[in-house]
Write a protein that binds this DNA or RNA. Structure first.
Length: 383
DNA sequence: TCTGGGGTCCTAGGACCC
DNA sequence: TCTGGGGTCCTAGGACCC
């Protein structure tokens, strides 16, 4: 989906069309009082009433920027405060995940109606298997891509970009070629012309660390990566990752489109408004900790899961992260149990330094209904 | 007044088991 | 005088993704 969060917000506030808008940070002035005042006619909220990026106080990053905002150099994962000077007049809206999830469900319904083999990749992205979908082979996939793009626009008013290719790796790269509202077809023979000139970072799975290391070896483009011997890449990047890098550079990817998967863990975390000290701010920290446990428990219950690995995560004021976890015999989804076990984890961590973030995680999940016969008694040894 | 939140997967060492 | 070879599970950290 193109600039998904921002595009959903623009459906509510069409008066913001064409303006630099960023989504991110905490509550803003218009979300409660204003929403009440203009209920049912949000399109009438005057521009002057919206929060400006330059006036933001707090912690947070830009999660999405509209295309006009990007023209000012505003982009995702950028600190709100530090970059406000690039365009202080940009309008800032708080993140409304519930609303984005609603639109996420709607656009995915449209896709499944046309091509049922769809893999969920988060709120704003999917892989679709065109292989056996009706019309999926017409015009090399272009026809079905157009149908889906149009169907999503009619159902939601949102635009998307689609890449059609022989595998997920290439389709993902192709989808970036013509944003927004683009369709790109990449065929095996296009590797040299369309893929090899791109930066290594464009390969899904090459992040900032791997990219920096590749650059250190003088490898900047996918073509330069493809030119290295497989064995050389394995010697410098590890056997598995080196082989994968080589395959990726040659456009090879056999991963299937996976339509169903079970969650591995559920977590809640929060960055405090100011750094907190375990002793000095004990009461506040404790209150937040309990609330996180209750939220995770509620998430588990809502989705029908229980887990037996309880863990915590904290981030110190210097951004170092530590985690601790503990696996128990009994699966649980109970807030008080999670709180008790997470509390024990917290005791195993140095707490002299101020904390910026606290998180609670429950892993090793099973479905609630598969839990009925949890063994509790004594087992006899037979042999 | 830099730097969110919710995830997955991989690696590596150690405990423990047969 | 010498100490195997599998295998699984747990824990901590880190890279990466949306």
């Amino acid at each position: 989906m193109d600039a998904f969060y921002a595009s959903v917000e623009l459906l509510r506030y069409p008066q913001l069309a064409g303006l630099p808008v960023v989504i991110g940070g905490g509550r803003s002035t218009q979300d409660e009082a204003l929403a009440r005042q203009y209920a049912g006619r949000l399109h009438a909220v005057p521009l002057a009433a919206f929060d400006r990026l330059g006036g933001y106080v707090g912690r947070g990053v830009i999660t999405t920027a509209t295309y006009p905002a990007r023209a000012f150099g505003l982009g995702s994962a950028m600190g709100l405060m530090k970059n406000a000077h690039r365009c202080p007049e940009a309008i800032r809206l708080p993140v409304d995940f519930a609303e984005y999830r609603r639109f996420s469900r709607r656009f995915k319904e449209v896709i499944r109606a046309h091509a049922p083999v769809m893999e969920d990749r988060g709120v704003d992205e999917v892989y679709i298997d065109f292989t056996d979908a009706p019309g999926g082979q017409d015009e090399g996939g272009l026809a079905l891509a157009r149908t889906i793009q149009q169907g999503i626009f009619e159902a939601t008013g949102l635009t998307c970009s689609i890449g059609v290719a022989p595998n997920k790796l290439l389709a993902k790269m192709a989808s970036e070629f013509n944003k927004p509202r683009g369709i790109s077809i990449v065929q095996p023979g296009d590797l040299q012309a369309l893929i090899w000139p791109l930066a290594c970072r464009k390969v899904g799975g090459v992040g900032p660390k791997a990219d920096a290391k590749l650059k250190g070896h003088g490898i900047h483009t996918i073509g330069e990566l493809a030119a290295r011997e497989r064995a050389w890449l394995q010697a410098h990047f590890g056997r598995a990752y080196g082989a994968w890098l080589h395959d990726a550079a040659w456009g090879r990817d056999e991963r299937p489109v996976v339509t169903e998967s079970e969650p591995v863990s559920m977590s809640r975390e929060t960055t405090f408004e100011r750094d907190l000290h375990a002793v000095h701010d004990r009461a506040e920290l404790s209150r937040i900790f309990t609330a996180l446990c209750q939220q995770v428990a509620a998430d588990l219950a809502a989705k029908g899961y229980a887990g037996k690995t309880i863990g915590i995560k904290l981030r110190y004021d210097d951004f170092r992260i530590v985690t601790r976890d503990h696996t128990t015999a009994q699966y649980t989804q109970d807030a008080a149990t999670i709180r008790r076990l997470a509390g024990l984890c917290l005791k195993r961590v140095p707490l002299s330094q101020r904390l910026r973030l606290l998180g609670v995680r429950v892993g090793a999940l099973v479905r609630e209904h598969e839990l009925a016969a949890q063994p509790q008694g004594v087992t006899a040894e037979l042999f």
